[in-house]
């Protein structure tokens, strides 16, 4: 039932790949900086400044994809014991709250981006890098994340309304961990069979 529109998924996955590439870059940059300092008496100017800015993209570009894979933590403790009608209402409340949070945070992030751009805000190190591109990435990441989260919440509400109640002790986080475990086990098993060949 809960299928997320294809373009959204593609966009989210592209952002993850971008973040992944930045993570590898960050890793190699640190290695090169430390190596340079240890063996060649020359570090890469502004490594810390660049890394600090990159962290923002690496930290949040994956938000929407993580939401698509239900990776964000929530805990079902009380809900399992409530009658279906109440659970339906709660699903509605959740949808409203997520939408509300999404609007407030996105609005605020837009303000932060505009302000950084207009003020010509820069990092305070030697490179004086403009911060607005990262704040733009932040806005994009969060808006996309909230779109997916709201989409999921609405669909969950609709599912419940149609009587498809999610199984009691299946936490979202658990479902995600199970998927991970399957992935991981597959990799490990695949690896071993490869070796035996």
């Amino acid at each position: 039932m809960r299928t997320i529109p294809r373009p959204l998924v593609l966009l989210a996955e592209t952002l993850v790949i971008v973040a992944g590439a930045l993570l590898v870059f960050l890793m190699l940059l640190t290695v090169a900086d430390v190596g340079g300092r240890a063996f060649a008496d020359s570090s890469i100017l502004g490594t810390v400044e660049i890394s600090t800015l990159l962290m923002v993209a690496i930290a949040f570009l994956g938000l929407a994809a993580a939401e698509i894979h239900n990776r964000h933590v929530s805990v079902e403790l009380v809900e399992a014991y409530l009658p279906p009608v109440v659970r339906l209402i709660l699903a509605g409340v959740r949808t409203v709250l997520i939408t509300l949070t999404g609007i407030v945070i996105s609005w605020g992030l837009l303000g932060v981006l505009t302000s950084a751009f207009e003020r010509g805000e820069t990092t305070s190190g030697i490179l004086r890098l403009a911060t607005w591109p990262m704040k733009g990435i932040l806005l994009v990441s969060f808006v996309l994340f909230f779109v997916v989260a709201i989409w999921n919440a609405i669909n969950e509400f609709l599912d419940m309304k149609e009587g498809k109640v999610v199984e009691d002790d299946q936490l979202l986080a658990v479902q995600q961990a199970i998927d991970d475990a399957d992935d991981i086990t597959d990799t490990v098993v695949a690896h071993r069979t490869e070796e035996k060949k």
């Binding site: 008496d41 020359s42 030697i126």
Partner: peptide
């Protein structure tokens, strides 16, 4: 950082 860079030192931010 720029002052010491002018004399060939490596400024390290930390």
């Amino acid at each position: 950082s720029q002052v010491i860079l002018a004399r060939g030192a490596n400024p390290v931010a930390m």
